[in-house]
Simulated scan of single mutants.
Amino acid sequence: MSIFSFLFKEQNLPDAIAILDREDYKSAISKGKVQLVDVRTKREFMSGHIKGAKNIDFFQGSAFDASVAKMKKDMPLYIYCQSGNRSKRAAKRLVELGFSKIYDLRGGYSSWSY
C-alpha cells in the first residue's frame, strides 16, 4: 500500500457511505428524527454517548445484523464508534445488508465534544 492510498483510504468506501466531520454530523443529526447508532460495546456506550443514539454493538455479529434489520434501509443511518475504525467496518456491513445511505462520524466519539 502506498502512502497516497493510505492517506486517501476513505475514497475506497462504497458510494453509500459518507464520512462527516463533527460539525456536519452534529448539524445533520439535530435536524429532526434520525436513525442514530452507536456501534460500540455496551460498556463504552454507558461511559458516554451522543444523545438519542441506539447502542447496537458491532462485535455481536449476527445480533448486530438482526438489530439493524429492524431499521429503515431507505432512510439515512448515522453511525459512530470510539475512533472511526469500527464504524467504517460497520458501515460496509450495512451496505451489504441493503442500507442505501450511511453517515459515519470522522474520528468517532472521541472527537465529539458537545
Rank of each mutant, 00 (worst) to 15 (best):
K42R: 11
L13G: 01
F59K: 11
C81N: 04
Y78N: 02
F59G: 00
D65N: 14
P76L: 11
D57M: 01
F64G: 02
A18G: 00
D65W: 02
A53S: 15
S62C: 05
T41A: 15
S62E: 15
E10V: 02
K92I: 01
Y25G: 01
K51E: 12
S87R: 05
D21I: 09
K42C: 01
K33W: 07
V68L: 12
S30F: 07
C81E: 02
S62V: 13
V39N: 07
R40T: 11
K26Q: 14
I29P: 01
Q35D: 08
G84A: 09
D24K: 15
L20N: 06
L20F: 12
L36F: 07
L20G: 05
K88W: 04
Q60V: 04
G52C: 05
K9C: 12
V39R: 08
K70E: 15
D38W: 08
L36R: 02
N85S: 13
K70N: 14
V37K: 06
R43L: 14
G48L: 09
G61D: 14
Y25N: 09
R86D: 01
C81Q: 06
Q35M: 14
S27Q: 14
V34I: 13
A18C: 06
C81T: 03
A16W: 01
F59N: 11
F58A: 02
S30N: 08
Q35L: 11
K42Y: 10
N85P: 02
D65C: 05
Q11N: 12
I56W: 10
L20K: 08
K73I: 03
I29G: 02
D74Q: 09
K54C: 02
L7P: 04
N85F: 13
V68K: 07
S87V: 01
